[in-house]
């Protein structure tokens, strides 16, 4: 197995609220291999975005990381002094978001914004040098006529171009890890295909690792080497991408796969999952998916199931996996 660039251990991110402490991320352990892509999939409210903000130490108050470690090449980011953490952001770990329009400042030109990101980490660089490097950064994300785009403003660019600018800014200081939070969700499919292509090319050029957060199983299949499926703040299943798609173990993973209409399949009805994700202040005591799970039996409601090995590097948090063996034993629901 390749050495991990980043490992997250027992991460727990909580919010104080009127109803007590709510855990948005509850005991998550994951690792990102060097030069590879970890895809984190889940529906809204599963904690996938909060997980990435926790890694960056950007959890908005009243939220805070209550427990766990985030090791970047062995250094725990959660205990770094603030000034050092500021250096890590951008230079070692960079992030891009779903909506490029709200992440860009509308009153500054594209070029100024890229140079600002560079200057923050290299205050001694000269203006001419920064300008050349910013134009090179735009060229690197395949923006046509980068010298002209350099002077333009965000509203003059299409959604796909704006996301390219965001990627150029994120990669300006050659980070080791790029966290991409739903980078193509706001884009049309043909533009999405361009951006995914670009991310793949940049990864093979630079050798950076990527954490790709998405709700789209198609995007995950297209990009990820490793996949973690999250549900209600926990990891339900994780493993190599092919194992997750070809040998899915957790009933939630199955439900997700069954819910998406596929081009290569003719079905009269989609296999929807009944009900909806439980709110974080009313989580079931046992397995969090049990109330929606057709395979749930009484032990499922007793205690949260731990992740356990199914196959090589493939783990699922389900006491009934693999389900056919479990059903054969006569533990019918």
């Amino acid at each position: 197995m390749t050495e991990a660039l980043l490992s997250i251990e027992g991460l727990r991110t909580v919010f104080r609220s009127g109803m007590g402490e709510i855990a948005a991320v509850d005991g998550v352990s994951l690792s990102v291999p060097r030069g590879r892509t970890l895809g984190i999939v889940g529906e809204s409210g599963c904690g996938k975005s909060m997980l990435s903000l926790s890694v960056m130490r950007l959890v908005p108050p009243p939220g805070r990381v209550a427990a766990g470690r985030v090791l970047l090449e062995g250094r725990d980011l959660l205990t770094l002094p603030k000034a050092e953490m500021r250096d890590v952001r951008g230079r070692e770990v960079a992030m891009i978001f779903q909506e490029p329009m709200t992440s860009l400042n509308p009153v500054h030109s594209i070029g100024d914004q890229i140079m600002e990101a560079m200057r923050a980490h290299e205050p001694r660089a000269g203006a001419a040098e920064l300008r050349d490097r910013a134009i090179a950064a735009l060229a690197r994300v395949r923006i046509p006529a980068p010298e002209r785009r350099f002077t333009e403003y965000p509203h003059q660019l299409s959604g796909g171009m704006r996301q390219r600018v965001m990627i150029a800014m994120a990669l300006a200081c050659s980070p080791k890890l790029l966290i991409a939070d739903e980078p193509t969700t706001a884009l049309d499919v043909t533009v999405q295909a361009q951006i995914l292509d670009l991310l793949r090319e940049l990864q093979s050029e630079t050798g950076m690792s990527i954490i790709l957060i998405t709700h789209d199983l198609g995007v995950v299949a297209e990009m990820a080497d490793e996949v973690a499926v999250m549900y209600a703040g926990r990891v339900a299943e994780r493993g190599p991408a092919r194992a997750i798609f070809e040998d899915p173990q957790h009933p939630y993973t199955l439900g997700l796969l069954g819910s998406i209409p596929r081009l290569d399949e003719e079905r009269e009805t989609l296999l929807a999952i009944e009900g909806s994700v439980p709110p974080p202040f009313a989580l079931p005591p046992g397995c969090r998916f049990a109330p929606r799970c057709p395979f749930a039996i009484s032990p499922c409601n007793a205690a949260p199931p731990p992740l356990r090995d199914i196959a090589d590097a493939h783990e699922a948090a389900c006491i009934r996996a693999p389900i056919e063996a479990s059903l054969a034993l006569g533990n019918a629901a």
Binding site: T190, Q192, A193, L196, D197, R200, G218, A221, E222
Partner: peptide
Amino acid sequence: LAAIPHPDPQRRGRVTPL
């Protein structure tokens, strides 16, 4: 049709962007 990512890692990279 070609731009839709398929939920199948074996078919990775077959997308040809416009």
